[in-house]
Write a protein that binds this DNA or RNA. Structure first.
Length: 272
DNA sequence: AAATTGATCAACCGCATGTTA
DNA sequence: GTAACATGCGGTTGATCAATT
C-alpha cells in the first residue's frame, strides 16, 4: 500500500487552531458537511490538511462535545471498560457520549491509570503482550468460543428482544451511556442492522471497533442513521456494516454483550 | 520575583484498514 | 488483483499553566 502524500509539504499550517479557523471550519461543515476531509480544507479556504480538520472537528468543534471535568461515573466507566478492552479508546469513547477518544486517553494517562496502578507506571501497550495481562477482546475469541450455545437466552425465550431494531441512534447513545455507567443495565442491540447478525461464533470475531461504530454518532455530531427503514446512510459517512457483511443475530449480540458487561472480571467470563 | 518541575491537553504522526477505480 | 486514496485509531509530543522551591 502506498501512503497518501504528506500534507505538510504543501506549506499547510500546523499547530493550534485560531478562532477564525474554527469558525471557517464550523460554518463550512454546517453548510456542506464533510464529504471528503482531504478536499474540505481547500474548499473551505483553510490552510490545513484534511486530517487536521477532521481531528479539530471531532475533538473540539463538534456540537455534541461535552465539556468540563469527568464525573465520578464517567471515570468509573472508563476504568471498567479499560479493564476489559485495553487501550481501545474509541471503543471506550463510544460508551461515553460527548466524550472523545482523545479526551479519554488524556484522562486515563493523567489521572486514572495512577488510580488503577498506583505503584506502576502506565501499562505500556508495547509491553502489554509481555505482561501476561490480557483483555477480554484479546482472549475472548479463543476462550469465549467455548461458551455453550445452550446458554443462549433465545433458546429459552425466542421472542425476547431487548430493544427494537429500529431504535434510533440517539436513543441508543443515551441508553448506552446509562448502561456503561451502571455496567449492569439491560444491553440493547446498539442499533445493529436487523438480521445482519446470525451466528454467535461470528460475534466472537468481533473487534472493539464494533462497539465504537455501532454505538457512535457520526463525525458531524449527528446520530448515525441506524433506522434501516430510512435507507442506508450517506456513503461519505461510511457504513460500518456494509463493507464487512456480518452474520450475527441481534439476540446473539445481546446475549454476549450482556455476559461481558455483567462479568465482574475476566476470570468470571472464563468460568462461564 | 525568578526558576524549576509537574500536570494537562490539543494536536501531530505513523500505521492499519477500508474503499474505489 | 492491485494501486491509489481516504479514514480512523492509538501513541506521542510540545505548548501552556499552575504549583513548588
Amino acid at each position: 500500500m502506498v501512503r497518501a502524500p504528506c500534507c505538510e509539504k504543501m506549506g499547510l499550517k500546523k499547530g493550534p487552531w485560531t478562532p477564525e479557523e474554527d469558525e471557517i471550519l464550523v460554518s463550512y461543515i454546517r453548510s456542506y458537511g464533510h464529504g471528503n476531509w482531504r478536499a474540505l480544507p481547500k474548499q473551505a479556504g483553510l490552510l490545513r490538511c484534511g486530517k487536521s480538520c477532521r481531528l479539530r472537528w471531532i475533538n473540539y468543534l463538534r456540537p455534541d462535545i461535552k465539556r468540563g471535568n469527568f464525573t465520578k461515573e464517567e471515570e468509573e466507566t472508563i476504568i471498567k471498560w479499560h479493564e476489559m478492552l485495553g487501550n481501545r479508546w474509541s471503543a471506550i469513547a463510544a460508551m461515553l457520549p460527548g466524550r472523545t477518544d482523545n479526551e479519554i486517553k488524556n484522562v486515563w494517562h493523567t489521572h486514572l491509570k495512577k488510580r488503577v496502578n498506583p505503584n506502576q507506571s502506565a501499562q505500556n501497550p508495547k509491553r502489554k503482550a509481555q505482561s501476561g495481562v490480557k483483555t477480554v477482546m484479546e482472549v475472548g475469541p479463543t476462550k469465549l468460543q467455548a461458551i455453550p450455545l445452550a446458554a443462549h437466552p433465545k433458546l429459552e425465550n425466542p421472542s425476547q428482544d431487548l430493544v427494537s431494531p429500529s431504535q434510533s441512534c440517539s436513543e441508543i447513545s443515551s441508553s448506552a451511556a446509562t448502561n456503561a455507567s451502571t455496567m449492569t443495565g439491560e444491553i440493547n442491540d446498539a442499533g445493529i442492522k436487523e438480521g445482519c447478525m446470525q451466528s454467535s461464533e461470528e460475534l466472537l470475531k468481533i473487534d472493539a471497533s464494533f462497539w465504537s461504530e455501532a454505538l457512535s454518532i457520526d463525525d458531524c455530531g449527528m446520530p448515525m442513521d441506524c433506522n434501516m427503514s430510512a435507507g442506508p446512510p450517506p456513503t461519505s459517512l461510511g457504513d460500518p456494516f456494509s463493507s464487512s457483511p456480518s452474520n450475527f443475530d441481534n439476540d446473539d449480540i445481546n446475549f454476549w454483550l450482556k455476559v461481558i458487561m455483567e462479568a465482574e472480571d475476566f476470570q468470571e467470563l472464563l468460568e462461564i
